[in-house]
Amino acid sequence: MKKILAVIAILAVALPLYSQKKGRRAKKEKPPEIVADVAYINTVADKPVATVGDGMKLYVLSLGIDGGDFKANMNLLLKAGILKHTDYIETAPLRRGTLARMIARHLKLNDSFFFNLFGTERYAFRACIAEEIMDYDGSEWDKLSGGELLEILRRVSEKTGGGND
């Protein structure tokens, strides 16, 4: 009887510990950039104003590429046809229009006649409103907060099927 009770007691204590240890063992196999990317996203989420550098880095990550520095990210986006030029300043606040034009070029939002015609940030913003990626409340000149940037990129990710099985 004593032996049986002792075995049960050992199992009861050991099983939860084993389960946690199993998790820890599996964690070691994962590369450190996973944690770095998630930590960076959470830093951006708390920013009252996101920068152009944040927007570009996150956009590169959304393409499934581990980006580099600001210039490397900008060149990557230029090659992908998402940026029209590279006249951007890394620390400048990210405006709704800048992000809207990147999204409109990436998703090829051709339904907006005026965006097709002029390709300006103003009409890119309106094309993003029509696609329910951005909210109608505001203008293309608005500075985006980190939370807003993530919310918009999440909607883009949903459109492109990111995060599906």
């Binding site: 939860p16 389960s19 599996a26 996973i34 959470n42 996150l58 499934g64 990710s157 990111g162 995060g163």
Partner: peptide, 17 residues
Amino acid sequence: SKGQTLLEGAKISTGMN
């Protein structure tokens, strides 16, 4: 990781895609 157990108070965050 898959199979891991979490406790009350845990914060979980997901990245792109």
